Amino acid sequence: MKRLIGYARVSTTDQDLTAQRASLASLGVELDGIYVDHGLTGTNRDRPGLGQALAAVRAGDQLVVTKLDRLARSIPDARDIVDELTAKGVVLNLGGSTYDPTDPIGRLMFNVLSMVAEFEADLIRARTREGMAIAKAKGRLKGKAPKLSAPQRKQLLRLAAEGEHTQAELGEIFGVSRGTVQRELHRQFTL
């Protein structure tokens, strides 16, 4: 008996899975057969929901995803997943279109879609780098705000110079981590 196992993923914790769940349900996937990853990118292969979905499928089943980029964002990762599905005798269903990896046409179509998904991910990264460079050039990208204000920094350096407190104690006094204290002290001596 063929089962439909669904997989949905969003990259950030702010994103919502409702549309993907609804789309999977409209493709015939039972709600209890949908596995999800929330806040994980498609470039990260270590995704618990994907692992559960791949463990759930058996020979003759279909793994259903709304779009290929929800499953993988690189060609090697997509191929690894398809090889695993092929070994199990599972067909991939992308938004209602099935791609049988044992069929030459299905394999070709899947490879083309994988290349498009990877290309799209590369474009997003390039646009992000470009946008950050423009913002930095305009002075809008200043980096992370310092944990300590200028007066706090001055007091931290004074107390550290006195040598009466450990770095951990200084961290407690100022409400920051020992690592932050170390960075401030290092910054002082390298300037």
Results as ranks from 00 to 15, higher is better:
R153P: 02
T12N: 12
F174G: 04
N111P: 03
A133N: 06
I34N: 07
D103F: 06
A160H: 06
D37N: 13
E118W: 07
K136E: 11
D83Y: 02
M132W: 03
P76Y: 14
D16G: 07
G33S: 15
T66K: 08
G42R: 14
L185W: 00
D46Q: 15
S177C: 02
Q152D: 07
R140G: 06
E84A: 10
G39Q: 14
A135E: 05
T66D: 13
A121Y: 11
F119W: 11
V176K: 06
P151F: 00
T12Q: 15
A133T: 08
A53N: 11
K88A: 09
L94A: 03
G171K: 04
L27P: 03
A78T: 11
L92A: 05
P76L: 13
A117M: 02
I134C: 00
D103W: 04
T41P: 05
A22L: 15
A117V: 02
L94W: 01
E164G: 10
G49M: 08
G143F: 14
A55P: 01
R58E: 15
G60N: 05
L17P: 14
L191N: 12
P104R: 14
G179H: 00
S97D: 12
V64N: 04
S177Q: 00
A150C: 00
K154G: 01
A25D: 14
E184Y: 08
A150F: 00
E118Y: 10
T41H: 10
A126S: 14
K147N: 08
V176D: 05
G131S: 09
R187N: 12
V57S: 01
Y35S: 09
A55F: 01
G28K: 13
S114R: 04
R178D: 00
S11W: 02
G89E: 01
K88S: 03
A133V: 07
S97R: 10
V64Q: 09
A150S: 06
S74K: 15
I34Q: 15
Y99Q: 11
I105G: 14
L40N: 07
D61L: 09
A126K: 14
T43L: 15
D80P: 02
L185H: 03
T43H: 12
Q20H: 10
I81P: 05
L156C: 09
A53H: 10
S74I: 12
A56N: 07
K136L: 03
P76G: 09
T128D: 07
G95M: 14
L40A: 12
G28T: 08
D122K: 13
A56V: 08
G39C: 13
H165D: 02
L40C: 08
I173L: 14
R183H: 04
